[in-house]
Design a protein around this nucleic acid. Structure first.
Lengths: 213, 213
DNA sequence: TAGATTGTTAATCGATTAACAATC
DNA sequence: TAGATTGTTAATCGATTAACAATC
């Protein structure tokens, strides 16, 4: 029985990209690939690819390469994509509608089980297979269904209040669209922060960098 | 005249967060802060804070700390936030509407100068101060206004085609909401990819990790 | 077998942290 | 001046790359 040393976060962050790539390859019928070819296509080094795959008990074959579907499965296992964690989405404005309607949750380890919004204008509408519920029913819903995670698609001025409320109910994992550092206030939560502002600022830096001396 | 050694990307990625934090502080009237206090509030080490600030010619004062508004300005300069790069947004569906309507471009180094969509249903509507234009006018618009960057808020199946088209027009910088690795196809472009899928997968990993042996 | 390509160890590189003299 | 806190150098840590023996 081999000791399972934890995979480093640097590696984890590359896994989704590998996964997309390998899924594409698998779809187009490719069944094997070498670290060299994969690295060239993805802009990594071959060494890194091999190191990465070995983190989770490599199963390439010398002189042959890696089995593409096997790799996909291995990555899915590491990322826990088979789990289908139940999640809820808060805020059915434009952003919420975009996410609820177009995010392929099932492929990403989640199942959307509820959408909530305050506005009577949208409550009752259907979106992403879910009827939008009034936000004040979220407490009862949490008790009954115990979602693992909440997606926040609310205006920035409401993020703090809503996070605190959900935290109070017992929720400990959030996927948040920017604007507020949940993690600082509730350090025991799991947060994945898609901070669009930061991302845009970083792009600005890159643009600015192209015209520097 | 001191040699301006380039700031490393690890540092750059932390700058937006510093900026938000310091802006908040400045707003609430705080004018000075020590690396120790800032580090504690932000979850970094004091050492890192000092190293980071020294990258761009530190101007703290021994025994005193850093001047908050000065720091903000310095970060803004590094990130190029005063530049106001003109940008266009493609796709005025829910996601596009959310971005165009709520992203504070002016604070982030950009100015939204045009929104484009194919659908006659939305063309002519106003959003984020912009009238939505038909996508087939984007070529002429590019020639006239030379936007620096395009934000893509289109369905994943259209990302490739639209990117190629804009690239053909001459655009070289993109801010893309996931699904497709522009950077691999056009390696000379500047891309900032808010890959929501990847982010969600990473959250899934973190969730899964909490229940591992 | 010969050629190819992995698994793995060692070397390098870069980023973070610690320590402390300089100085406000 | 004494206390505080920076700027900066040195030490540590981790991640990436190179190299090569193992082996399919």
């Amino acid at each position: 029985m081999q000791k399972q040393k934890p995979v480093s976060m640097s590696v984890i962050r590359r896994l989704p990209r590998y996964h997309r790539f390998l899924t594409e390859l698998a779809k187009s019928g490719v069944t094997r690939i070498s670290s060299k070819e994969l690295s060239e296509r993805m802009g990594f080094t071959a060494s890194q690819v091999r190191q990465d795959f070995n983190c989770f008990g490599g199963f390439g074959q010398q002189g042959y390469g890696y089995n593409v579907p096997q790799l996909c499965t291995a990555i899915e296992e590491i990322l826990g994509l088979q789990k289908q964690y139940p999640c809820i989405l808060i805020g059915a404005g434009n952003l919420g509608k975009a996410i609820a309607g177009h995010m392929p949750f099932e492929q990403l380890g989640f199942q959307l089980i509820g959408v909530f919004d305050n506005s009577p204008k949208v409550v009752g509408q259907k979106i992403g297979g879910q009827e939008i519920r009034p936000y004040d029913s979220v407490g009862a819903f949490y008790e009954e269904h115990r979602p693992s995670m909440a997606i926040l698609c609310v205006p920035r001025e409401n993020v703090e209040e809503i996070t605190d409320h959900l935290y109070g109910l017992g929720l400990r994992s959030f996927w948040n669209f920017g604007h507020y550092d949940i993690v600082l206030k509730h350090p025991d939560t799991i947060v994945e922060n898609v901070h669009m502002n930061d991302s845009l600022m970083t792009l600005c830096y890159k643009l600015a960098a192209t015209e520097r001396p």
